[in-house]
Design a binder for these strands. Sequence first.
DNA 1: CACTTTTGTTGATCTAGATCAACAGGTCAC
DNA 2: GTGACCTGTTGATCTAGATCAACAAAAGTG
Lengths: 203, 203
Amino acid sequence: MTVRTESTNLLRASISRVIDINDDEWKLVLQYFFPMRLKKREPWFTAGSACNEVAFVVSGCVRTYLMKDGNERSGQFFFENEWYTDYSTWLGKSPTTFGVDAVENAELLLINFRDLERLYKELPKFERFGRIMAESALWGLCIQKIAYMKDSAEAAYLQLLESRPNVIERVPQHMIASYLGIEPETLSRVRRKISQQAQTTTV
Amino acid sequence: MTVRTESTNLLRASISRVIDINDDEWKLVLQYFFPMRLKKREPWFTAGSACNEVAFVVSGCVRTYLMKDGNERSGQFFFENEWYTDYSTWLGKSPTTFGVDAVENAELLLINFRDLERLYKELPKFERFGRIMAESALWGLCIQKIAYMKDSAEAAYLQLLESRPNVIERVPQHMIASYLGIEPETLSRVRRKISQQAQTTTV
DNA sequence: CACTTTTGTTGATCTAGATCAACAGGTCAC
DNA sequence: GTGACCTGTTGATCTAGATCAACAAAAGTG
């Protein structure tokens, strides 16, 4: 089972930004991770199934989504250096709430929940890493949910452009639209309006 | 500094639901917590200030809110047995994003972030408690944000009635409206429609 | 290369909910 | 007890964005 060193280096860096780990501890951590490659549009798992791993995105982009009234709605997008898991299976012993698939060809490093629990026991400070990552993600969502809810379509788009330019640049427009809670047609019109304004301003 | 036993019992129960703690460990935990009482409408802190504690709600109800375009928007509501903090200060070294005030007279137990860090060192398994609480809250928000975003006003209200009846029963309507991202007038009309439908159905 | 799928655009019309306005019961403070 | 404000209701009108429809460039696929 080969994992490129660049990939694992990225993982180590992500962890080291939060807790200090020496080489021995890193070996302990690394042994549990295994790679997964997804081609564009290929699913990791679908909604209503099971997710038994936590994923670290090495490269590419994946997104969460679910079906609502017959069409899919994108939840969140994850790029290189970001983490994701669907807690439904592990926390709630219930089917996954969302599906996850690749927006771009993606390389992930996965760790099984059971192995993660083992790692928490063997290396208690990793629990600290888990806590801080969860807290950061939680706080980000709190702010997003309340501060930007109910903005106009244009404000929501501009806000996304500002805070997550990757999404605007690398994700198809119709997915961005469903992420923002608007229709693709509306997003298209918003973009036209903005680019026209930009031209007018320049002249 | 006197804290009623009932209050601390509630706190201990909340923790024990997640990790096992014996009497010695409990003493260690308890020493750091101190009580705060808020009267209805009284603020704990305001948006743009600082929040240096994590709160456990013993009784009553508090909410987060922020000002948006001149009027306040309620973020989340917290009742007895629930936890809240504004991570802006501690994680981001920045002013608080939200304000928090009491919807009902409330009794809180607070722990200072600095003491919490101390507690994490003295009782590493408390880090586990923190992680699991953060993960649960994170997952709840993920689901709320994506699964229920963009529902109609009526669907959003019914969903809230189903999932958090406490909010419907104990929070003023105009706050519920801003929480749902709709206007008080709309909520009033939605409620009328639902109660009329209920009557028709009964007959 | 032909054919299908994915992705994005533009126009016309429709509607849920916002906004503006007036009113009224409750309750809190002095 | 009375005025202020907190809270909720109802009506009339307006608008952002949904919906329906048609089109078209790009990108995969065999």
